[in-house]
Amino acid sequence: MRVLAAMSGGVDSAVAAARAHDAGHDVTGVHLALARNPQTYRTGARGCCTLEDSRDARRAADVIGIPFYVWDMADQFHANVVDDFVAEYAAGRTPNPCLRCNEKIKFEAVLDRAVALGFDAVVTGHHARLDGEGRLRRSVDEGKDQSYVLAVLTQGQLDRAVFPLGDSTKAQVREEAAARGLAVADKPDSHDICFIADGDTKGFLQRQLGDAPGDIVDGRTGERLGSHNGAYGYTIGQRKGLDLRVPAADGRPRYVLSITPVTNTVTVGPREDLEVGVVTASKVIWHGTSTPVECEVQLRAHGEVYPATVTVEGDTLTARLASPARGVAAGQAIVAYQRSDEGDVVLGSATITASAPLLAAHA
């Protein structure tokens, strides 16, 4: 099989490419240049959009013995990931840029170009598995599992994807990289958002959107408790950095309950007011299982899972949770899993649009 290996410059993608080569595939490595100006993105080992990463990927391809190219996808990345990130926050939602990058860049733009060039599939270093029926499953290393951010892929995209690392732990991948003589064996994992150079998300959004002063109000009484310079600087469930001028009568901390862009208002309240039992979502990707279905849902990357009853009607997914979840934010993904002895299977995903209190789940 002729495959294109997406090589980020990290240890996972290097070992994935090497395994594909060992399996007898005709492998070509490609590094995605995603930054319009790489110097404005992260440097060192903290991101996936650096000049160092490009060089590391090339060196890994040389060791493996495969052809290597760099594809400039900076404009597509900026339009589909960076601009989307800013627009979602401006609309009061909390996006996941890694999920959007997988959807729009690695498994849409890259896969489409690869197929047009005659490749059969795209190989990546994601920690996830595809079973014999082409179903997406969690990695055996649940701490590194990335099925959540891959659940936006269609079945057609999954059919042209290869994830060689799903049956290995991260420690095993690093050991193998060292044994292969790959210099990235001990390279730290990337963290945070790759296109925010200093890791200051609030500062980045402020530079993009400007100051937009508004009120912080109590969710139960409507009392004005303080002010903010931009509602985009807050996320559901946030506790720190609220700078409230009026303390709670009971002395307990307050959390962000909701963000309303129309009135530019941030609403706060006690922790128990974050509890939700019904989650509604749109942009559904569903893999054929009839609903309603008893399953488990994950509401954020590396977050808890909750038993739920999921129903899909048209482009709307509704999850009725068996126990309350907190900090559920519109814009994040909800991913449904079916637990099995062979590993959790992804049933589908959707983008969260709204949530309701636990009582509504049993109405």
Score class of each variant (00 low, 15 high):
R2P: 03
R2S: 03
R2Y: 03
V3W: 12
A5P: 01
G10Y: 05
G10M: 09
G10R: 04
S13M: 00
S13P: 03
A18R: 01
D22Y: 13
A23C: 03
G24N: 03
T28D: 02
G29L: 00
A33E: 03
A33S: 06
L34R: 14
N37R: 09
Y41S: 15
T43A: 14
A45C: 15
C48S: 15
L51K: 13
D56A: 05
A57C: 01
R58D: 13
A60W: 00
A61K: 02
I66E: 05
I66F: 05
P67Q: 02
F68M: 00
W71A: 05
W71K: 06
D72V: 02
Q76K: 15
A79D: 12
N80F: 09
A87N: 04
E88I: 10
E88G: 12
E88L: 12
E88P: 11
Y89H: 10
Y89P: 04
A90V: 08
A91H: 05
R93D: 04
C98A: 07
C98L: 06
C98D: 06
L99M: 14
L99P: 11
N102R: 08
E103D: 11
K104I: 00
K106G: 00
K106L: 01
D112Y: 11
A121L: 02
A121V: 00
R129L: 02
L130E: 03
G134F: 13
R135H: 08
L136S: 04
S139M: 09
Y148R: 03
Q157M: 07
R160T: 03
R160H: 06
V162G: 04
P164F: 04
L165M: 11
D167G: 14
K170A: 09
V173S: 10
E176S: 08
A177D: 11
A185S: 13
K187V: 11
H191Y: 14
G199K: 10
R207C: 13
R207H: 14
Q208W: 11
Q208H: 14
D211Y: 09
G219K: 07
E223W: 09
E223N: 13
G226K: 04
S227W: 12
A231R: 13
G233I: 13
R239Y: 08
L242H: 09
L242Q: 06
L242F: 08
L244P: 04
V246L: 05
V246E: 02
A248G: 10
D250L: 05
R252G: 11
P253V: 12
S258I: 09
T260M: 13
P261W: 05
T263R: 10
L274W: 01
A281C: 09
S282E: 14
T291G: 07
T291Q: 08
E294T: 10
E294G: 10
C295R: 05
E296Q: 15
R300D: 07
G303S: 01
E304A: 09
V305P: 12
Y306W: 12
T311I: 07
L317C: 08
T318R: 01
S323I: 15
S323K: 15
A333W: 08
D341I: 08
V345K: 09
V345N: 10
V345A: 10
L347K: 07
G348K: 03
I352G: 02
A354H: 06
A356Y: 11
P357Q: 04
P357H: 05
L359F: 15
L359N: 15
H362K: 14
